[in-house]
Design a protein around this nucleic acid. Structure first.
Length: 560
RNA sequence: AGGGGUAUAGCCAAACGGUAAGGCAACGGCCUCUGACGCCGUCAUCUCUUGGUUCGAAUCCAGGUACCCCUGCCA
């Protein structure tokens, strides 16, 4: 289809407009996009934006999207990253089908095209070293100066370039340069480097090559051989566009792709640059690339973010060309919206204090039915145990309640979710004054609703679990990894903004026993506490470890 | 002799010369066995700024201002 319906959550963007035009006026009969990561690290939420744009456009307009590894620099690339990237793209819900490519599969073609340029007098072998090249490049305001090797004969260039390929020269001794314009105001046109010598094995093509093409000499041409129609990248490549086109103009390429740029994603309270992420991992500031506090796709996945929530997020933030900062709360809101629909409910007491129901016999126990979802009866129910000894959350009790607190207080009453109304009748403390346990009584007729026998409505509903049946588990609560909205801001070391309390590990949490068979992929809502999922690495059948994906919205906390 | 971009609400973002969509946040209210969810309502006389063209300008023109990108043998 060539025209998509707009709905409330998808507004138009400039890329869709361009594609609609191209399809309408017959410039293309169908579109081909590509997601072109360099396999030199793990994917993060910023890549997710690009993935969603490229695969999403292809999907919406009935075209196709390639996964292409931009593997032109073997010094930084590894098979491990290739594998991880494929896995992350698949996890996000996208499928490249048979269209998996490597820029390195075109190395021979690229080499021939470089020879073509030399033959045409449009490229030359440079003997100057990196520093000299830099010195001759000029500055932002001054033109560069031409290299003495710029006028080498075609024959000599051909000979030298061939020997570069053969591995005759050491790394850094020579490069191949395009002969364009050393005085161009666009610095990327001042005789850019096309090939460098690198005696480094490559993760995909092994040790077949001793010279490797630069990004600029590979990207557009690779787009052209794959038949990419819309080559979508981020804004910082905008100044490379004239060079991208120069190659297409001067080489016998089989098709004519066009480059379009969009603003990369910036998220508050986190860092996204590969270098910084790597540093956090290397310095042991996080547990790994999949640390649940990181914006990496593996981290978000481990934490419990769902693919659909990330896709929705990318849809919501839109695509534009102005630098923008998205607040992390938008991402968080996106998982909440998804999980509220799909997550079965359960009860878990994170900071337990015991409550003894004095009018409930010690040897008695009964099963109560609790709905798995308040609005979705089709999700069924489960039975939970009610007994004399219960665990409730410390946060749900205040001896000296602040104004507006409508949970449990001495002499006060509260509804136990899916259970009974209980009244607190007293506190047992140790000699230091610490609360040992709470005493209370329950109203046997209060199973349904929140009304007392005399018709009053109790204000508070709290979660609880039977002490006799409870499972003990570890629960990890995460907070923002940085204390500053923009830890990446220039002029400051982002590490100074690390939030020291970004993870809180609670080891004595009490969970309802239905969670004994919790599924690794299922996200649960622990009622009133947020959404949780088993940690895929650290959780064991006998030792449950849950990660909190995100809290519930809490307007009470805001008022405090 | 610098070049290339971008400016619409607290944060994103639509609009294509015809009288400022939508989402998030916020704020009222309703509902509620989760202080959740849901529902209703409010939220730009105005589009960085100054002029101009026009019956009519966020959109066109001219001049300012601010911010981002470019001086790797990285991508």
């Amino acid at each position: 289809m060539t025209c998509i319906e707009q709905n409330a959550t998808t507004s138009n963007n400039f890329l869709k407009t361009i594609i609609e035009e191209d399809l309408k006026n017959g410039k293309h009969s169908s579109i081909v996009t590509r997601f072109p990561p360099e396999p030199n690290g793990y994917l993060h939420i910023g890549h997710a934006k690009s993935i969603c744009i490229n695969f999403g456009l292809a999907r919406d307009f009935g075209g196709r999207c390639h996964l292409r590894f931009d593997d032109t620099n073997p010094a930084k690339e590894e098979q491990e990253y290739i594998d991880s990237i494929k896995e992350s793209v698949r996890w996000l819900g996208f499928d490249w089908g048979e269209y998996l490519y490597y820029a390195s599969d075109n190395f021979e073609t690229l080499y021939q095209w470089a020879v073509h340029l030399i033959t045409e007098g449009k490229a030359y072998v440079e003997d100057l070293n990196a520093e000299q090249i830099r010195a001759n490049r000029g500055t932002l305001t001054e033109p560069g100066v031409e290299s003495p090797f710029r006028t080498r004969s075609v024959a000599e260039n051909l000979n030298l370039f061939e020997r570069m390929r053969a591995g005759e020269f050491p790394d850094g001794s020579r490069v191949l340069r395009a002969k364009i314009d050393m005085a161009s105001p666009n610095i990327s046109l001042r005789d850019p480097v096309l090939y460098r010598i690198l005696h480094t094995p490559h993760p995909h093509v092994g040790d077949a090559w001793k010279i490797y093409p630069m990004y600029d000499f590979a990207h557009g041409q690779t787009d052209a051989v794959e038949g990419i129609t819309h080559s979508i990248c981020t804004l910082e490549f905008e100044s490379h566009k004239p060079l991208y086109e120069w190659f297409l103009d001067n080489l016998p390429v089989p098709s004519r792709p066009r480059q379009y740029e969009f603003a990369r994603l910036n998220l508050t309270y986190t860092v996204m640059s590969k270098r910084k992420l790597q540093e956090l991992v290397q310095h042991g500031l996080v547990t790994g690339w999949d640390d649940p506090r990181l914006p990496t796709l593996e981290g978000l996945r481990r934490r419990g973010y769902t693919p659909v929530s990330i896709r929705n997020f990318c849809e919501q933030i839109g695509v534009g060309r102005s630098d923008s900062w998205i607040d992390v709360s938008v991402l968080e809101e996106s998982v909440r919206a998804d999980l509220n629909e799909s997550a079965p409910r359960a009860m878990a007491v994170l900071r337990p204090i015991k409550m003894i129901i004095e009018n409930y016999p010690a040897n008695q126990s009964e099963e109560l039915q609790a709905a798995n979802h308040p609005q979705k009866p089709e999700m069924g129910s489960r039975s939970i145990h009610f007994t004399r000894e219960l665990w409730i959350d410390a946060d749900d009790f205040m001896e000296a309640p602040s104004k507006g607190f409508h949970r449990l207080t001495v002499g006060g009453e509260v509804k136990l979710r899916s259970g009974y109304i209980v009244t607190c009748t007293g506190i047992i403390k140790d000699e230091q004054g610490n609360i040992l346990e709470l005493r209370g009584v329950y109203d046997p007729g209060s199973r349904e609703g929140i009304h007392t026998a005399d018709g009053r409505k109790v204000k508070g509903v709290i979660h609880w679990v039977s002490a006799a049946h409870a499972l003990t588990a570890e629960v990890r609560l995460f907070d923002r990894f940085f204390s500053d909205p923009n830890p990446d801001r220039s002029g400051a070391d982002y590490k100074q903004f690390l939030n020291r309390n970004s993870v809180e590990t609670l080891t004595n949490c009490k969970l309802e026993d239905t969670l004994a068979g919790a599924d690794i992929e299922t996200r649960y809502q622990f009622e009133r506490m947020g959404y949780f999922r088993l940690d895929p690495k650290d959780s064991q059948p006998g030792k449950l470890v849950f990660n909190r994906v995100v809290t519930l919205r809490d307007t009470w906390i805001i008022k405090k």
